[in-house]
């Protein structure tokens, strides 16, 4: 069910559309003059995407987080538009990663999908400001000290070298970011944390699944500054534009703080 986020779902008046994905339980009710949305995060265990239909007004989700959008004539269908995280993701390799001199490698780092709700009529799409991650994140601070830095989401990564995930690796709601590291220095680089500037990346559907722009980092040494590039995938369809426009400073900041 890899296209669960792309298909519009028609919802009849008085009906509710339910979605279970990752840790997220979500319900959308279409009523005569409004759309009501309810969501909750389950404790323990993640699920593959599962869409269902129920009758609106159930007490099962009455105590969840909720919001309502009034419409003169509520549009008939709903889309879960895919998005990247709204903040950078700081991820720690499970095992410390050491890049030998004169070595280049590509790491594939995963991050969970976010869904931005859109309601659709036959001729137009209305984006709503409800934007939910399918997994809950903890937060962290990324910076040289507590005065300078940015708030980011925190995660751990296995920093795989292979882009292809298996079914039990939640391929349907994981986004992968390829990070290419060129170590042109004469010494080993120790990677303890990676900061992915996800809000400034585009999201694409490619052969490997949902992927972002490739982040390329060159470390040349000899007192020269590291160069950082962001490259869109060669083959892949853009499914979500970056949330933020970056003039280069965010990317450079993210990577210059990477290594000691």
């Amino acid at each position: 069910m890899s296209d669960w986020w792309e298909n519009p779902y028609g919802v009849a008046l008085g009906d509710a559309l339910t979605l279970e994905v990752g840790e997220l339980d979500f319900v959308a009710e279409r009523l005569p003059s409004e759309w009501n949305f309810f969501w909750n995060y389950r404790m323990g265990g993640v699920t593959q995407p599962r869409v269902g239909r129920k009758t609106a007004g159930s007490a099962d989700w009455a105590h969840w987080s909720r919001c309502r959008y009034p419409f003169r004539d509520p549009p008939g269908s709903l889309v879960f538009a895919p998005q990247l995280a709204d903040r950078p993701l700081v991820t720690k390799p499970v095992m410390p990663l050491l890049v030998p001199p004169a070595e280049s490698l590509t790491l594939w780092i995963s991050s969970p999908l976010w869904c931005r709700l859109e309601v659709r009529t036959e001729d137009r799409s209305i984006p709503l400001d409800l934007d939910l991650p399918v997994l809950r994140f903890s937060e962290t601070w990324f910076g040289p000290d507590t005065l300078n830095g940015d708030l980011a989401y925190a995660s751990t990564t296995r920093a795989r070298m292979n882009p292809y995930l298996t079914r039990d690796e939640w391929i349907d709601f994981r986004i992968q970011t390829p990070v290419i590291i060129h170590n042109e220095e004469a010494q080993v680089i120790r990677i303890e944390r990676l900061n992915l500037p996800l809000p400034t990346c585009g999201l694409y559907l490619a052969e490997e699944g949902l992927i972002t722009d490739t982040l390329v980092w060159h470390r040349t040494g000899h007192g020269q500054k590291a160069s950082v590039e962001r490259i869109p995938p060669v083959r892949g369809r853009l499914v979500a534009s970056p949330r933020q426009v970056d003039n280069g400073s965010i990317l450079t900041r993210a990577f210059t703080r990477l290594f000691d």
């Binding site: 903890s138 937060e139 962290t140 601070w141 990324f142 708030l151 925190a154």
Partner: peptide
């Protein structure tokens, strides 16, 4: 660690 309000770093 379990609290969503506490930062991992510091």
């Amino acid at each position: 660690r379990q609290s969503s309000l506490c930062l991992e770093e510091p």
